[in-house]
Design a protein around this nucleic acid. Structure first.
Length: 739
RNA sequence: GCACCCUUAGCUCAGUUGGUAGAGCAAUUCAUUUACACUGAAAAGGUCGCAGGUUCGAGUCCUGCAGGGUGCACCA
């Protein structure tokens, strides 16, 4: 960008609009965000301790929202603080392809304009359209990320679908396949009939819904269901072995009874999965369309018959209802059962939860399908492990690796309560379905020819091989992110230096999707944890605590806030008052308040510079002024301590109050008469004291409000470094324990 | 159903080994050229959700309850 002309210094009031682009250009030209440049220029020692954060990549086709803004503010504070403390500091930027969301957006646009589906276009053409769309929109999000003042090293930018990352994903798949951890099998999966793809357990959202609950006569039994449309194939009736009501029936006993489309032979199954308390205690099962029923069927080796197809249409097994959509068929089936006198009772006010695809899809219909899975309970030999509790060369499972990473403390989760949630999730973890029936994404690196299967990063030699049509769950590639961004599978210097990363900072809503998968992937492929610390921030809500959404019209746009109040004020409003892991209610008045603070600092500087400059630093301090400087240094300790423990809210609050209430309201006010009335040593001491405290305040505030502090730094007559961004933090780390 | 979190001033929230209740915003009154009106000062505002317990002492620790929220499970 063109740096605009420097404005007349200290015009009142402080103008963020003019200053921010100019300051941004200074930072970008300096390339100080790149740790290699810092070492080259002597800002960072070549043997300094590394400090790494990998940015959770925003969706390449998205726009910046307040959640992103909070994430960027937090991470930039940590990064700027550590850089000033002299660490070899790297913050890696990137964007995510967000496979399902992006494809459905592009498909939707094409359908709207051209009335064409992806099948009309074909795979290659759709890919071209998606590539064009992502390429076009990627600069929007990148520009918006930069406007927050984020000191990311753009020379290391990564995109989940770029060539190095694609290669990393292929390599990861092949290695896990070879270790026997990735397998293909017929399992019951979450099928989204709307998007025509599988969905992982974590992507399911349970939505409460009210539906009629039907009681039907099933031979001598009365069974309950909300889904009559699945009942055609039900030829097993399951009761609990201890249920005395059904003691007269034995396991495996066959009964002839009248059912929807005529007489059938039903088999009695005794299984503890039947809940005696629910309904009548008797249920029929539909193994092809229910995870629990499928498990029961497997236990007793029962027949499994598909009733509903991939689009939600009833199959020939439904007899006269075949070809009907399940939604329409339900009432027709009930009507028929009614005619036959098999409806015992209908409970109209039954509430239950329905599984939906949280990624904008439809109601989940469990289906049995041939899919690819990552086996989390399968034993494998881990060649190399740095994770405490997992020995190199020992036999272990992915689940155990994930557990050990956190249980050993190698990865700490803050706030701590999320560790409990993490362990609970691990215990209940089932194999991860990783294949998706969409086209945009990393294609499964497996080829078939007759009965032969080949898995490799490149297509096999020879004719007649056909590649698997499916792509990988987007979280499969995201799981590699901490190391695929650093050049893995090559053994790069970056990977050597910066992995495991120091902190992963993200919203608590994706702990399972992403945090857990990164621990899995890093554990398997590197024998390392991906990060030493997880810091989870809350969600940003509106002033009344509601989620921000388009339909409520309560979205506060970070870019609007930046334009009205400046990026510094926007950042502070997202930091102060936001405790770790708790949601933040954002009120525009607060943003305005912090704009006032930026202006206050601007005016403080004007006063100090009118009365003192760097030459004052040679003056001798009186004892009273020494005490004032010492007090400011104590504040620096407090701020450092709070940042080290992720209490950025307390750190920001402490320095805010010091600068406004202590420095401006008291120290400066008390200085005024001395500056006016006295000459000589006492005055010189005051001048030096003011200047020192100003420098200290600028440094302490820089991570929080980088723009205004850097703008002021540029106007200082003499300064220790060309940019405040790389000035020395006033207190040095107190021990090796800090991260 | 199981688990976790929250409940402190009108609103949003601090309160880190238990020791006299704090801030920001809003509202009230006053000051008016000051480094600053994107300012300053004053005053007001709270039986810290409720009930017990431990303690010399509880916003803080323990138990129970209520209200609000979240995660997991549940298509019987």
């Amino acid at each position: 960008m063109e740096p605009s002309k420097a404005p007349q210094p200290f015009l009142s009031p402080y103008n963020s609009i003019d200053n921010e682009p100019r300051i941004r250009a200074l930072w970008e030209d300096s390339k100080y965000a790149n740790p290699d440049v810092c070492i080259e220029k002597g800002v960072t020692a070549s043997d300094a301790e590394p400090y790494t954060i990998v940015l959770p990549p925003p969706n390449v086709t998205g726009t910046l929202h307040m959640g992103h803004a909070a994430m960027l503010a937090i991470e930039d504070i940590l990064i700027r603080y550590q850089r000033m403390r002299g660490k070899k500091t790297l913050w890696v930027p990137g964007t995510d392809s967000a496979a399902i969301a992006t494809q459905s957006k592009v498909e939707g646009d094409i359908y709207k304009k051209e009335k064409l589906s992806r099948h009309d276009l074909g795979r290659d053409e759709l890919m071209k359209r998606i590539d064009a769309f992502t390429e076009e929109s990627k600069n929007t999000i990148i520009e918006q990320v930069q406007r927050m003042g984020s000191s990311l090293d753009w020379s290391r930018y990564a995109y989940t679908m770029d060539a190095p990352r694609y290669n990393a994903v292929m390599t990861a798949f092949v290695r896990m396949y070879e270790a026997g951890l990735i397998y293909r099998g017929n399992r019951i999966v979450n099928w989204d009939p709307k998007l025509q793809t599988t969905v992982s357990d974590e992507e399911i959202e349970h939505v409460e819904q009210k539906d009629p609950f039907y009681y039907f006569q099933y031979g001598p039994f009365v069974i309950g269901t909300v889904r009559p449309e699945t009942k055609f194939g039900d030829k097993y009736v399951v009761v609990h072995p201890d249920d005395e009501r059904y003691a007269e029936y034995s396991h495996g006993q066959q009964l002839e009874l009248e059912w929807i489309n005529g007489p059938i032979v039903a088999t009695v199954i005794k299984d503890e999965a039947a809940n005696m308390e629910t309904g009548t205690g008797a249920m029929t099962i539909t193994p092809a369309h229910s995870a629990i029923d499928f498990e029961i069927a497997q236990r007793h080796k029962l027949d499994v018959e598909q009733v509903i197809d991939e689009r939600g249409i009833l199959l020939p097994i439904a007899g006269e209802f075949a070809g009907q959509h399940i939604k329409k068929a339900r009432s027709m089936i009930v009507a028929k059962l009614h005619e036959k006198g098999l409806v015992v009772k209908i409970d109209e006010s039954y509430t239950h939860n329905v599984s939906t695809n949280s990624r904008g899809g439809g109601t989940i219909e469990p289906q049995i399908k041939l899919q690819w899975f990552v086996g989390v309970n399968k034993e494998f030999t881990i060649p190399h492990s740095e994770i405490p509790g997992i020995q190199s060369g020992s036999k272990t499972t992915l689940k155990e690796v994930m557990r050990a990473a956190v249980a050993s403390g190698a990865t700490k989760i803050n706030p701590e309560r999320f560790e409990k949630i993490y362990f609970h999730w691990i215990e209940n973890l089932r194999d991860w379905c990783i294949s998706r029936q969409i086209w945009f994404g990393h294609r499964i690196p497996v080829w078939y020819k007759g009965d032969e299967i080949y898995c490799g990063t490149e297509a096999p030699e020879g004719e007649g091989w056909e590649q698997d049509h499916d792509t990988l769950d987007t979280w499969f590639s995201s799981g590699l992110w901490t190391f695929s961004t650093l050049g893995w599978p090559d053994k790069t210097p970056d990977l050597e230096t910066f992995h495991p990363t120091s902190v992963l900072e993200t919203g608590y809503d994706i702990i399972f999707f992403w945090v857990a998968r990164m621990i899995l992937m890093s554990g398997f492929h590197l024998g390392q944890v991906p990060f030493k610390q997880v810091y989870l921030h809350g969600l940003v809500r509106d002033g009344q605590g509601r989620k921000m959404s388009k339909s409520l019209g309560n979205i506060i746009d970070p870019l609007t806030m930046i334009e009205k109040y400046g990026a510094d004020a926007t950042r502070l409003s997202l930091i102060i008052g936001a405790q770790p892991g708790n949601d933040l209610k954002l009120d525009e008045n607060r943003v305005r308040g912090y704009k006032h603070f930026a202006n206050k600092l601007w005016n403080i500087t004007r006063f100090v510079l009118e009365n003192a400059d760097a030459s004052s630093l040679t003056a001798t301090l009186t004892d009273a002024d020494k005490a004032l400087v010492a007090e400011a240094k104590e504040l620096a300790q407090t701020v450092s301590g709070n940042i080290d423990t992720f209490r950025l809210d307390l750190a920001g609050d402490a320095v805010y109050h010091y600068v406004w209430d202590r420095f401006a309201a008291q120290i400066i006010e008390e200085t005024k008469p001395v500056l006016k009335l006295y000459e000589g040593e006492e005055k010189a001491s005051k001048q030096r004291m003011l200047y020192e405290i100003l420098i200290l305040s600028l440094k302490l505030l820089h991570p929080f409000m980088p723009f205004v502090t850097e703008a002021i730094w540029q106007e200082l007559p003499e300064k220790e470094t060309d940019l405040l961004m790389v000035a020395k933090w006033p207190v040095q780390p107190t021990g090796a324990s800090s991260i």
